[in-house]
Amino acid sequence: MTEPTGPVLVVIPTYDERDNLGPVVKRLHAAVPAADVLVVDDASPDGTGELADEMAAADPRIRVLHRAGKAGLGAAYLAGFATALQGEHQVVVEMDADGSHAPEDLPALLEALSDADVVLGSRYVEGGQVLNWPAHREWLSRGGNLYSRLALGVPIRDITGGYRVFRRQVLEELDLDEVASQGYCFQVDVAWRAVQAGFRVREVPITFAERERGSSKMSGAIVGEALWRVTRWGLAHRFHRLRRGDRAAAGQVNA
């Protein structure tokens, strides 16, 4: 594997993931031994935060950020990014705690940074796959990605996925304080901002597997938020382009 561009921090948000966190971090360190881990726990009732503290006490590569309560995936990642930028890490990774993101795929994502600023682990490019999802769940995901791609006019095939690698510069330059999205809409929001800012965004195939333990946090409210926000962003983007085109045309006429 090509060495990444600097120290790597893997941000793992947790809420009731006590059964999954230990095995995921163990696999992660088997795949990328030098990676540091930041567990961002939203006061999990099942004791995930306490387990994370025990893991951190036993391994200097692990840190824990405790938050007051469940505030959503987007807020957890933003808190993790802010913590990452306070240190010296040059590469920041998003990874789920439930085992759906295979740590064994991380070396390939890191290697792809050689010609990218943001690397998206993609289920829907050639070589990517989804395991153990019911058909309706996969079609909902594929449909949401297709709608987002068409509404926003971006070529990304898996813009809702949450397995990602960022160069530090991306998180420093994106105006993350303006990101208010939650759920997988947060992933759409950040990826779209990166594209608009001119960063190089690359997709790399991954194998996504449905969790074996615990329950999914996906809900109808999360899907509804995503559809509403993506539609609004897409319409605003098209309106902006039309106005810009009208101003350009007017300039040519006046000339």
Rank of each mutant, 00 (worst) to 15 (best):
T2I: 13
G6P: 12
P7S: 09
L9V: 03
V10N: 12
I12R: 14
G22M: 10
K26F: 04
R27W: 07
A35D: 08
A35K: 08
D36L: 04
D46H: 02
G49I: 00
E50P: 07
L51R: 02
L51W: 03
D53S: 09
M55D: 10
A56P: 13
D59Y: 06
P60K: 05
V64D: 04
L65C: 04
Y77C: 05
G80T: 00
G87L: 11
E88K: 10
E88F: 05
E88G: 12
E94S: 10
S100L: 06
H101Y: 05
H101V: 00
P103M: 02
D105K: 08
D105W: 07
L106R: 02
P107F: 00
A112C: 09
D115Q: 11
D117K: 12
L120E: 02
G121V: 01
V125A: 04
G127I: 00
L131V: 03
W133T: 04
A135S: 09
A135G: 09
H136T: 08
R137V: 15
W139A: 13
L140F: 07
G144R: 02
L146H: 10
Y147N: 03
S148E: 01
R149H: 11
L150C: 13
G153A: 07
V154Y: 12
P155L: 00
I159E: 12
G162L: 03
Y163H: 12
R164T: 11
R164F: 08
V165N: 14
R167V: 00
L171Q: 05
E173R: 08
E173T: 09
L174K: 12
C185E: 14
Q187N: 15
Q187D: 14
V188L: 03
V188Y: 04
V188K: 06
V188I: 05
V188S: 02
D189N: 10
R193Y: 04
A194M: 03
A194V: 01
Q196H: 12
A197F: 03
A197L: 02
V204M: 01
I206C: 05
I206M: 05
I206D: 08
F208H: 15
E210T: 02
K217R: 14
S219P: 06
A221C: 07
V223D: 13
V223G: 08
L227T: 03
R229I: 01
T231P: 10
R232W: 11
G234Q: 03
G234S: 01
H237Q: 15
R238T: 06
F239P: 07
F239H: 13
R243I: 00
R247N: 15
A248H: 09
A249C: 05
A249L: 06
A250I: 06
V253I: 10
A255H: 14
